[in-house]
Amino acid sequence: MRRLPVYLMLDTSGSMYGEPIEAVKNGVSVLLSALKSDPYALETAYISVITFSSDVKQIVPLTEINSVNEPSLSAGGCTELGKALEVVSDCIDREVVKSSSEQKGDWKPMVFIMTDGEPTDNIKLGLDRFKKTKTGIVVACAAGTAANTDVLKEITENVVSLASTDSESIKAFFKWVSASISTGSQKIENSGQESSGMDDLPPPPDEINIVV
């Protein structure tokens, strides 16, 4: 069975201290509990969590959704987004099963980046490395109104903001991306484009604001 790898990259820098980190914790928590009661996600989704502040850590290696425990998150330090993009690329290379003529590989990994959007390092190196990595849909979520969407736009054209991080918004969001990989992406594949623009995907639910 093909797995659907999902990489959550979470900003835990000092600027996230207080209410924002609590919102992200809440976001992860509701995401996990929603997915653990979704038969589709339980069957195929595997989750990894990578946090970035002064340091970048993969705090949850790619794990079947039912076995993922809520990671403990605390905020402090700077926002090494560039380093985080390198780390996620390494993880994808190592953990995602590639197809061969003998075996069906995993789906292309989905990457969610949640940040308040002001990297403190130079993201150039990490960005180049990330762009060379085979990914499916990459969605950058601007958490809160202070997020710098311009930087996120360099990483992916799919930048969204969530006005609310309630379980229904995130589940609706996840379902939308998941459905996109199985069916909606056919259109993209047929037109020969690897990257996925929002227009080629099924329409997102109302909970999600698209940043253009």
Binding site: R2, W107, S185
Partner: peptide, 12 residues
Amino acid sequence: VCDPDDSAKDEE
């Protein structure tokens, strides 16, 4: 395996 390079194409 119909397309070893591309999981979406393989699915299709």
